[in-house]
Write a protein that binds this DNA or RNA. Structure first.
Lengths: 134, 134
DNA sequence: ATAAACTTAAACACTTCTGCTTAACCCATT
DNA sequence: AATGGGTTAAGCAGAAGTGTTTAAGTTTAT
């Protein structure tokens, strides 16, 4: 059993990239094609995404569904809704409006367009008032 | 490409477990053997561990090696060493002694025995003074 | 418009993971 | 000593991931 999702090859390439090498330069160093470097880098990033989503799932295991933000809402509305729903079930949200919106955006930047939400977002809350998005 | 490391089967079992069911009860519900439930649960936990280690690697990509804590040290010594080494390279550690020790223990509980460290721990620091362990 | 950097797709051999069964085992409680 | 909860190991078929190549396609900057 490997200890990380990333293979040695993938880590190697991420390290070189971090150092600023281009895919072509890396291809020369490790003696393969740049297409291959690209593929491996892409696989690495997919693995990183998977890892994040796996841990997200763990959070939602602890948490309960709070509400679902409908596509098309703007995020101030969304934040308001979250605070309301949390109040209904008697839990105090651990974030102020600004941090909440930041967390929302960080959790899945592609789902935002300016201040609008493009896809439904499922919102979870745990006993401590931590909020998670899916 | 799956979006999470965990399969549906694995998530299903983690959910039931969270609700307090025994492996036997789950086996009955999903119509399989308890040995199988055990195996799947174990696989799920290994996947979660992998996910954590994958993200740990990302942190260490940003960070530089600070020092290695030798097996056998106690953790007050370890904390002192970390502060010293960080000072040498002119970075202020973002944690006080207590939080640092907590983070150290949380990062890999099996490596601790009372206040002693059982295996070498590689310590990384980034520009912001965040500390990571391996 | 040219070149450099990067992405994509199809195909391939190989390796690893997944869920499952069976059968045995450990460790508390009773 | 029996019961209930949990773990382990070997083995298997099917699914999914890995690194490669080749060849064609974008993007981006000069």
């Amino acid at each position: 059993m490997k200890e990380s999702l990333l293979t040695e090859r993938q880590k190697e390439i991420l390290r070189y990239r971090k150092q600023g090498y281009t895919q072509q330069q890396i291809a020369d160093i490790i003696d393969t094609s740049k297409a291959n470097v690209c593929t491996i880098e892409k696989a690495a990033m997919e693995n990183i995404k998977k890892a994040k989503e796996t841990l997200e799932f763990l959070y939602t295991l602890d948490a309960t569904h709070l509400c679902t933000i409908k596509a098309g809402s703007d995020f101030l509305e969304a934040a308001k809704e979250i605070f309301n729903e949390a109040e209904k079930i008697g839990i105090k949200v651990r974030y102020d409006t600004i941090s909440l919106i930041n967390r929302m955006r960080d959790s899945n930047p592609e789902r935002f367009r300016a201040r609008y939400i493009r896809e439904d977002i499922i919102v979870y809350i745990n006993e401590d008032g931590d909020i998670y998005f899916n």
